[in-house]
Nucleic acid binder design. Structure first.
Lengths: 219, 219
DNA sequence: ACCTGAACACCGTTCAAGT
DNA sequence: ACCTGAACACCGTTCAAGT
């Protein structure tokens, strides 16, 4: 009764100072994802966390897709590409790729978003590409083959990030096992050796790619 | 008035013979996707095309996710893996991978679905894995390394399928170009050489993977 | 310029009623 | 067993009204 509640309703109209910004929206989105996953990331939930009406978000972001783009650019800053400044090419690629996959395994729903996403104005993403390109050039890669090689590595990384979230029994052939004996047995013998299946596949593919790309360069 | 229209309304109650089935639903979904893309694939639109009420679909599929699973298994039959029966390992992998990427580039929204998708009861998918596994074993691969190698190739293929739908100016650094000179120049020199950028990256990565995996096997 | 509140056009899914 | 029709609980987004 007459007491001012700590988070009193804001009434309509322009507030004394802006309460929203790209930074605040991105930060709230990230918290929401950590707590409730990507299913929990709705414009309503985002607004609730920021203590605004859902429609207020549209004064800053043109669409939910734009929020996802901000998120992608921010998440990219979590990828560690520092090895390109110090390590030989193969070691730098290896440590960058493992970090990159780890980050996007926790943000798998961003992977399909990235594919359709122009890098324009994604400054943090460009910062990474610049440094990676520098590493490739320093290792003697011809300029016109740098981008295809990076894209090839990224395609493998994104596909592998999706694979991390696969259930461990994804290759359980169930009742049909009898019809597909070779594959069923191969699945059994690969899981039998212990360790994470997704990690084993990523290691095999990454080492293969590094070796193969290096050999392409030498020829 | 009183004339029987060709597609008269069906009244409630069990129809004389079933009008829906996994096969008919999958077929209609595929037609819908061809005409209107994955955005057009809603349960309502699917029901309309099958001339039933949306709720009727739930007598056959537990959810839209299950329809997508049927679709994935069907789409897998479009992948050509016949080369494993006749060609040497490297050639077979090459032709299978290009076919696989081509099919899923046209069905990119299925890619994230596949990741979470157990293969159980997906008979057509298992048929492919069985034949691919046979090819690897015949080429001398030790049984416990067959599945990781296949998964690595698939991760690359899925990531590359997403990359195909990327806009061609995806790496246009726009106003920020001046800050990232090495990458900007590398992008220019790789697109300058003409040809499809996604194809060049896929070729580079696939040839690298084939070479690298083959070398792993030899060691 | 930037907020609220009400509304809109969807979406996937459930369920009682019917045969 | 398997359909219809009505309903439910969301979703992203728009827009007039307010400061």
């Amino acid at each position: 009764m007459g007491t001012v509640r700590p988070d009193a309703q804001r009434r309509a109209g322009r507030p004394p100072q802006g309460v929203l910004s790209r930074t605040r929206i991105t930060g709230a989105a990230l918290e929401l994802i950590d707590e409730a996953g990507y299913d929990g990331l709705t414009m309503s939930a985002l607004a609730r966390r920021l203590k605004v009406a859902p429609s207020a978000l549209y004064n800053h972001a043109a669409s939910k897709q734009e929020v996802l783009r901000w998120l992608q650019d921010h998440v990219m800053t979590m990828v560690d590409f520092s090895a390109f400044a110090t390590e030989p090419w193969a070691d730098a690629v290896r440590s960058w790729a493992w970090s990159y996959r780890g980050v996007f395994a926790r943000h798998a729903p961003l992977v399909p978003v990235i594919a359709v996403l122009p890098v324009t104005d994604a400054a943090d993403t460009l910062r990474m590409y610049e440094e990676v390109a520098r590493g490739f050039l320093a290792a003697g890669w011809p300029e016109d083959r740098v981008v295809p090689a990076i894209v090839a590595l990224e395609s493998f990384i994104y596909g592998s990030a999706l694979d991390v979230s696969a259930p461990s029994d994804i290759f359980d052939s169930g009742a049909l096992a009898g019809e597909f004996p070779l594959f069923t047995s191969a699945v059994r013998s690969s899981t039998g050796s212990g360790g994470n299946a997704a990690d084993a596949a990523f290691r095999a593919g990454l080492e293969g790619l590094i070796t193969g790309l290096d050999k392409q360069l030498a020829d």
